[in-house]
């Protein structure tokens, strides 16, 4: 079974103020897709991730794809197939940049 791992050389942090604003917006039912809540930095490349991206990133701790989707599904109002597709696309992008690795 393929597991997913954050590259330990990536430096990252969540931005507390942005996260608080997003959580307030979520409570109001507002869109938060465009707001960054974390920043990742490695090898001269900086990424800013929104709330969902950050939650996925935090789950790249050796879990499988199924494990990540199972963890996220109760948190987001979305069909499992759609979520799975979005997560896979995002992980592939992170892998291409060297921010995560897949392991068997």
């Amino acid at each position: 079974m393929q597991t997913i791992h954050r590259n330990p050389n990536v430096m990252w942090r969540e931005e507390a103020d942005a996260l608080a604003r997003v959580q307030e917006a979520l409570d109001r039912g507002d869109e938060v897709e465009e707001t960054g809540t974390s920043v990742l930095f490695s090898g001269g490349v900086m990424l800013s991730l929104n709330f969902l991206g950050t939650e996925i990133w935090k789950l790249c701790d050796g879990r499988t794809m199924d494990g990540i989707v199972a963890e996220l599904l109760p948190q987001f109002d979305v069909e499992e197939a759609v979520l799975r597709e979005d997560v896979q696309a995002f992980l592939d992008e992170l892998a291409a940049k060297g921010f995560i690795t897949y392991a068997e």
Binding site: E15, A18, E34, G36, V39, S48, L49, G53, D86
Partner: peptide, 12 residues
């Protein structure tokens, strides 16, 4: 899932 962000502290 990548966005503009206002950093709350310097990176370096």
């Amino acid at each position: 899932m990548q966005n503009e962000i206002v950093l709350e502290a310097p990176l370096t």
